[in-house]
Every structure is written in structure tokens, then in C-alpha cells.
Design a binder for these strands. Structure first.
Length: 388
RNA sequence: GUGGCUGUAGCUCAGUGGUAGAGCCCCAGGUUGUGGACCUGGUCGUCGCGCGUUCGAAUCGCGUCAGCCACC
């Protein structure tokens, strides 16, 4: 994997780069649509190509439960062939599921249904599909991602929940560090000529000194890129930005920086201004399924429309004026999409999802162009709260 | 005409003497490395109508109206 840095905005720290991955080239800053179980929900691979997506995200945890990574390797060689997506794919490690499946240190003490159990060795998951037990370790997670053949593999981490005490945050961060060290050591032993890349993940919660410590520790390991994790878990926008700014000074310039799970336009613009190169988020697709369309831009401001609401019944405008997405360019009205959503017609969800993905991908196209022409601050400074 | 069944929220219905409920609909919020085409809330009633019994009736009795079914 190679990361080229072309130029950095003179006022902000926004930067323009190119990632060379096994399945192609990705221009950064970049947004990666989320396709957890081998599909960006409601959207086909052809449509993703047409939207201009350059890299998508898949999920180790889900794909390994079903159809399993061994199946994908044996039947199709890689996840790319399986889903007919020949461009790059990043796979998340399962670390987030440690968090999202409801793990709490306290919950481990109770008799409640435990889907996740952590030990020094790794994580024990109970499958939400059939209740069977699965073990993830730093090494196993890399093997699964080798089977999947993803371009970028993520290290196993512990995504610290919010709120968490300093002690809890420090302990989970240190657990993350030990696992990531094991992971990179294992990868260096087995990688051979593999073109796959492995990223490390910074933790540290909402504590600046822990974020800095974690960023230093992870940056000292030989990862191809550095992710900032444990954000967008309920801590709020300012705490999120602060976690980024506490970590970034300790991450080397020459590696791609990936802010995990952040996807509201304003949040991403601010993070790009801080020097983040990569993002993934479920929002465009999840909100699409829930009938919420993103509209606006850096000039008009960003907002969203809840199309299920009755005011759209008589609204014959397209979702967003001037939008070139498949829904807007074909002229589908808000009123029609409102009707489709009311009737629970699949098309409604698909149109809004396509629109949202287009909206966010276009935002990144404009951000890249503005950095190239050194106009990032001019175009996005107001939203990024940059003072020229 | 006789007999039976049914009348409770906009809709489909639950509720056999103790302060009227559910689901859907409608309305309003929420959603940030996807166990989420989802989750939280909220509005809406002369319990067909009248009279009785009872401390108390959607619930029991009588009458009445409407719909459906069967028989004549």
C-alpha cells in the first residue's frame, strides 16, 4: 500500500492524497459507504459504480457469521468477486461489535444475556443468528480478513463506550494496545507478498491525554494507516472534535488517517479541516431507509428532510434542487417519494438512499477539488469554523 | 314477520360489575466503525341510543335503532 500526499490547505490542515490499494486507487479525502453484510443496503454494485464510490466497507463480524470468510475464500477467492465490486474494500474488525452488542464491564457481572465477553486472549461472541459461540482474537480477525481479501484490514480493538470513567477508558485503551501489537506482529509474520494493508486504531475516549498516548502508541507500530475509533458513540460533536485534535498531532503525516463512524456533513468537514483523510458512516443508508434525505451544501447550509411527514404530500419539487443523483435528475418529486414511503414501497427507500450517497460523495468531490485549488477554507471555512 | 349474531378510537378488534385498551392509521421526535426499511413518545372515545337494576354498568335487564345471517 502506498499513500501519496499531494497538498495541504494553507489555512486549515485539510489535505489531498491518493491511496494505492490492491484493487485500485482511492482519492482522499474519501467517504466509504457501509456495506456490513456484503451489500450497501438497498443499492447494487453497479449503482455504487455509477454514484462514483471508490471504496466501500464490509464487516468481519457479520460476514464471518454468515456466509463465513472460509466460504467466501473457497467459493469466490475474495469478497470483491462475491459481491461483484472490483474496487477497494475496507473491512472492519469486529471491535465495534464489542461495543454495539451491548458490552459493558458491569454487564459482565450480571446474569443478563451476555453476547460478548472479553478476556486477554480476545473476545467471545454469541451469534445473534443462532446463539453459537465465536472467538475473535487479534490474530483470528486478521485471518478472517485475509480470507475476505479486503484491501484494508482493521485491527481488533475495544471501542470504549460513552460515558466511561478515566480508569475504564485507560484500561480498555491499554487492552486495545496489547491486541493491536499482537495483531501487527502476527501480520508481519504471515503477510508475505500480500498487498493487503492493515490499519491500527486509536482509542482513549474523551480524555485528551489518553487520546495522545494512544495516538503515539499506535503510530509507533508499523501500520499502513491510523484510524481514530471510539468516537460517534454518544459523546457529542464538540467532544468528538476534541478527540480528533488531541490525537492528530501524534499521528505521522505520511500515513492515511481514518475517522471511524463519523458521517454528518458538518462533522466530516470539520474533521477534514483537521487533517482526516477517510470516513465511513451508516447515516446515508440508514437515514435513507428511514425516509430522511440530506439536502443542501456548504453555501446553502446542510439540512435533512423527513419525507414521511405530511408537508411533503403536496411538494412537487425534487429532493434537492440542482442535484444530479438518480432520483433528482430523473425528476422524482418529494410528493411521490412521500407516497412511496407511506406505502412502504421499496423504491422509496432506494431513491432516498441513492440520493444520500450521491449527496455525501459529491461533498467529498467538492472538498477534494477545493483542497487542490487551495480554496478549502474559502469554501468550507465557515462550516469548519476556521478563521482565515 | 319470527329467530339469531354483531354494534367500543379513523380502521380491525380485545375487554362478563370497580377509573376505557391493543395493533394499525394519524402526529411529533430520534438515528454517526449497521443485531436498526428501525426506535421513543403523543392525539383521538357521549363503549349505537333510551330507560332501569346497582354504591358503581362497555359489562346485567327491558325497550329501541342499524347491519348481517337463517327461516317464513
Amino acid at each position: 500500500m502506498k499513500f501519496e500526499l499531494h497538498n495541504t490547505d494553507t489555512i486549515s490542515k485539510a489535505r489531498r492524497g491518493t491511496l494505492h490499494l490492491a484493487h485500485g486507487i482511492v482519492q482522499t479525502p474519501v467517504f466509504m459507504p457501509v456495506g456490513t453484510v456484503g451489500s450497501v443496503k438497498a443499492v447494487s454494485s453497479q449503482e455504487l459504480y455509477d454514484l462514483g464510490a471508490e471504496i466501500i466497507l464490509g464487516n468481519t463480524y457479520h460476514l464471518n457469521l454468515r456466509p463465513t470468510s472460509e466460504y467466501i475464500k473457497e467459493m469466490f477467492k475474495s469478497i470483491h468477486n462475491f459481491m461483484r465490486w472490483e474496487k477497494p474494500i475496507l473491512t472492519d474488525s469486529g471491535g465495534f461489535q464489542v461495543f454495539s452488542l451491548g458490552l459493558r464491564a458491569e454487564a459482565q457481572e450480571s446474569d443478563g444475556p451476555r453476547l460478548v465477553k472479553i478476556s486477554e486472549e480476545g473476545v467471545e461472541f454469541k451469534s445473534y443468528i443462532d446463539g453459537s459461540t465465536h472467538h475473535f482474537s487479534p490474530e483470528r480477525v486478521i485471518d478472517i480478513q485475509r480470507n475476505l481479501g479486503s484491501d484494508i484490514m482493521m485491527s481488533l480493538d475495544v471501542c470504549t463506550e460513552f460515558p466511561a470513567t478515566y480508569e475504564r477508558t485507560k484500561a480498555t485503551m491499554e487492552q486495545t494496545h496489547r491486541w493491536e501489537k499482537r495483531g501487527i506482529d502476527y501480520w508481519q509474520k504471515v503477510k508475505g507478498e500480500s498487498e493487503q494493508a492493515l490499519f491500527g486504531i486509536v482509542q482513549g475516549g474523551t480524555y485528551d491525554d489518553l487520546r495522545a498516548e494512544s495516538a503515539k502508541f499506535i503510530s509507533n507500530l508499523d501500520f499502513d494507516g491510523i484510524a481514530i475509533g471510539g468516537v460517534s458513540v454518544g459523546e457529542g460533536k464538540s467532544a468528538m472534535q476534541r478527540a480528533v485534535s488531541a490525537a492528530i498531532p501524534h499521528i505521522p503525516e505520511n500515513k492515511p488517517r481514518y475517522l471511524m463512524g463519523v458521517g454528518e456533513p458538518e462533522d466530516m468537514i470539520r474533521a477534514v479541516a483537521q487533517g482526516i483523510d477517510m470516513f465511513d458512516c451508516v447515516l446515508p443508508t440508514r437515514l435513507g431507509r428511514h425516509g430522511v434525505a440530506w439536502v443542501g451544501d456548504e453555501i446553502r447550509g446542510f439540512t435533512s428532510l423527513q419525507l414521511i411527514r405530511p408537508i411533503y404530500r403536496n411538494d412537487i419539487k425534487v429532493l434537492d434542487e440542482g442535484c444530479t443523483c438518480p432520483a433528482c435528475s430523473f425528476g422524482y418529486s418529494r410528493a411521490y417519494i412521500h407516497h412511496l414511503l407511506k406505502e412502504k414501497e421499496i423504491l422509496g427507500v432506494r431513491l432516498v438512499t441513492l440520493h444520500n450517497l450521491h449527496h455525501v460523495l459529491q461533498l467529498f468531490t467538492r472538498m477534494r477539488q477545493s483542497i487542490e485549488s487551495n480554496k478549502f477554507t474559502e469554501s468550507f471555512g465557515k462550516i469548519a469554523k476556521l478563521t482565515a
